[in-house]
């Protein structure tokens, strides 16, 4: 599904990703852990096409296509979803409008009928009920005045609605209480299927108790320095990054 080869990228002339190799097959969940500033968010931005993140080498193939040639919205429409580490506020735009506009843009892209207000409302109510998210959030402007946890929940709700093929979660668990953590994990697990994959960036092995990964990678200083199964996360928690990276 996703094949990253020797990927190098820089921001403002500073090299951040220094040769990443990673293959994600359909249905797999990969966890990425690593110290602050290692380049985890950078990787997620490069994959989703954010401006200013310049790819200087390597390649990324997504479902047989050259991912790096696509614009951010094309990538989104092709099923790449990034749950932001820091979700962005958009004043004056109700969350419901935002969601409906996004969903319809993606449906239109796929040649599907756009949903009208009633159909959309029905769908979104189903999702909020499933995830146990209060739907009063929908009336409020996107992320404006949301608590940290509410912002993350909003990301999960968006993901549930857009049903992406490749989920990129950047520290979706950070700042969540234990109930919200379960909501987030539930959001991912509900979407889990043989066709869908996920890249889950986290600092805490606790999340991986709920979203059980197939692989765990350690990203340090722009490179994947170690990969393993879920036991690697436990090991990391015990020994810290320094010991692992040095090994």
């Amino acid at each position: 599904m996703l094949e990253i080869k020797d990927l190098r990228a820089e921001i403002g002339g500073k090299e951040i990703l220094k040769g990443i190799n990673l293959t994600i097959n359909p249905g797999e969940i990969h966890a990425v852990m690593g110290p602050n500033g290692a380049g985890k968010s950078t990787l997620s931005y490069v994959l989703s096409g954010r401006e200013g993140y310049e790819v200087t080498g390597g390649s990324v193939t997504y479902m047989g296509e050259d991912l790096l040639a696509l614009s951010p919205d094309e990538r989104a429409c092709h099923g790449i979803f990034l749950a932001f580490q820091y979700p962005v506020e958009i004043p004056g735009v109700p969350s419901a409008t935002f969601l409906k506009t996004a969903l319809n843009a993606q449906r239109k892209f796929r040649g599907e009928e756009e949903l009208d207000a009633m159909e959309f409302l029905k769908l979104v109510r189903e999702k909020t009920a499933e995830l146990g998210i209060k739907d009063d959030m929908l009336k409020r402007a996107v992320n404006v005045g949301f608590s940290g946890g509410e912002k993350k929940r909003n990301e999960v709700l968006q993901m549930a609605l857009l049903e992406p093929k490749l989920m990129l979660l950047d520290e979706t668990d950070s700042g969540l209480d234990i109930d919200a953590l379960k909501v987030a994990a539930d959001g991912v697990n509900r979407l889990r299927s043989p066709e869908r994959s996920a890249l889950v960036i986290t600092h805490y092995q606790r999340l991986l108790d709920y979203i059980v990964p197939d692989f765990v990678h350690v990203l340090a200083d722009g490179k994947i320095v170690k990969s393993g199964d879920k036991s690697l996360a436990l090991e990391l928690e015990e020994k810290g990054y320094a010991a692992i990276s040095a090994a």
């Binding site: 951010p72 919205d73 989104a76 979803f81 962005v88 958009i90 506009t101 996004a102 892209f109 968006q158």
Partner: peptide, 8 residues
């Protein structure tokens, strides 16, 4: 970018 990432 946030909007574009959602498909707009």
């Amino acid at each position: 970018f946030y909007c574009q990432q959602r498909g707009l």
